[in-house]
């Protein structure tokens, strides 16, 4: 298992290298200059523009910038944000907990609702629960999260006034103040994910429940609960874990929109504004962080495979 883990970690290296190179190239291929975005409507003359360009190192050839940039960023040093007057790592660490809380809580809700509903749908095929699960998963996947976000806001914040409509309060403002502002974004993000998990769990469980060893277990007189949870679900988990990993990565991507809708100052919102402002270091750092998290999730999924099915680590 240790060897398997080390091998998977080593495979990170080329992936990270490719990701970093793509991040660098794409941000510089986008038209528009950070200098223009930086000065905005401020009164800056040509000499000052030249000075800022030089100070940021943007006057040098792209390849030279890349060769200076790469060794620095692999150590996590993305430099200073052009807009925040602070190191990029500091800016990201300030925002990441919000995005992490949002996506992690959305994942918890997804798993807590999606897997049981998928199992029940598979066990009671054609029944009311199955019908409900199908409708929920179809709706969840069809409804755009931003639209759902606005609808949730209108119902639960404006009409019922159960929770605030938007914004973010750090934990220092109180636990409920913090949590209440995450309820609607978490719901908006998790509904589409639940749809995916319900569908995947249901189809996998149906497949597994039709296998001979499940029939054997039932023939042996095992309780249905034991058959489902210890025999069928464990085998189905390889596929379900894959979807959960995918869902978390999708959640990180989806947070960009949800954070904008709910005015949450998370990493997604940071990346969006950094792109608009051409804040290269923040943009690169933000995307890299998300990439890194996605890779770590992939690693955890791979390790979970090996745990659920030991044959995988020898493959």
């Amino acid at each position: 298992m240790l060897l398997y883990t080390l091998r998977r970690i080593l495979e990170f290296v080329p992936t990270i290298f490719i990701a970093l190179t793509l991040i660098f190239v794409i941000t510089r291929l986008v038209p528009g200059s950070p200098i223009t975005a930086l000065i905005g409507n401020q009164s800056v003359d040509a000499a000052q523009i030249d000075a800022i360009t030089k100070q940021l190192g943007l006057d040098r050839p792209i390849l030279e910038q890349y060769l200076e940039w790469l060794p620095r960023v692999v150590t996590g040093d993305f430099g200073q944000s052009l807009f925040f007057s602070a190191p990029v790592a500091e800016v990201i660490l300030d925002r990441f907990p919000i995005t992490f809380a949002l996506t992690f809580m959305a994942l918890l809700v997804t798993v807590a609702v999606g897997i049981p509903l998928g199992i029940l749908s598979a066990m009671r095929r054609g029944g009311i629960l199955d019908y409900f699960g199908n409708v929920l998963s179809s709706l969840g996947m069809a409804l755009p999260p931003f639209w759902l976000g606005f609808m949730l806001m209108l119902v639960f914040a404006v009409s019922l006034q159960w929770v605030p409509a938007s914004g973010y309060r750090p934990m220092e403002f109180g636990f409920w103040s913090w949590l209440s502002r995450l309820v609607l974004p978490v719901l908006a993000l998790s509904v589409s994910q639940i749809g995916l998990v319900v569908r995947m769990t249901r189809s996998t469980m149906i497949e597994v429940l039709g296998m001979e060893y499940v029939a054997m277990a039932r023939t042996k007189g095992l309780r249905e609960r034991t058959v489902i949870l210890r025999h069928a679900l464990r085998n189905a988990m390889v596929q379900i874990v894959t979807v959960i990993g995918l869902v978390f990565a999708l959640g990180l991507g989806g947070s960009v929109i949800i954070e904008n809708v709910f005015a949450l100052p998370g990493l997604g919102e940071l990346i969006t504004t950094a792109a608009i402002r051409r804040d290269y270091p923040t943009l690169e750092g933000g995307i890299f962080y998300l990439t890194l998290v996605a890779l770590v999730i992939n690693l955890m999924v791979d390790l979970a495979y090996a745990w659920f099915n030991p044959r995988i680590r020898y493959a």
Partner: peptide
């Protein structure tokens, strides 16, 4: 002064008393 770029969100926040 809260920064709320989405106008729909600003209006909803006003209606909810935020």
């Amino acid at each position: 002064f809260w920064i709320v770029p989405e106008s729909t969100t600003r209006v909803a926040g006003l209606e909810s008393g935020e």
